[in-house]
Amino acid sequence: MTKIFLNDIAHGRSGDKGDTSNVCVYARKPEYYKIIEREVTPEALHAHFGDMVKGEIIRYDVPSLGGFNFVMKHALGGGATMSLRLDSLGKSMGSAVMRMKINVTDEELAEINNV
């Protein structure tokens, strides 16, 4: 097992609805989908963010697009209008998700490094 950044195998985008942050995460190659499915669970993501995300995290799987949609509630310090954060719209929440460390097996790592 090796730890890598989710960023090494995924891409996506963050948006906001009030205090809810919405981050879609796609596998950079179809074979990485199963790694994301296994590693980036709502629980793991909550552990990654700690109290920065105060509400529930829901993951919606969209295999036909090779991706996932993460909906994180009470995640933007009150949302666009009220947040005191520099990034009140959570534009950088996408890269904050990509910063998560995930476990990959030696075979998976070899596959990733083979690119």
Binding site: N22, C24, Y60, V62, L65
Partner: peptide, 16 residues
């Protein structure tokens, strides 16, 4: 494909 995918689920919440 990738540029459209990033926008496709943007601020969608439940895709279904």
């Amino acid at each position: 494909e990738q540029s459209c995918k990033e926008q496709f689920l943007y601020e969608v919440l439940d895709p279904a």
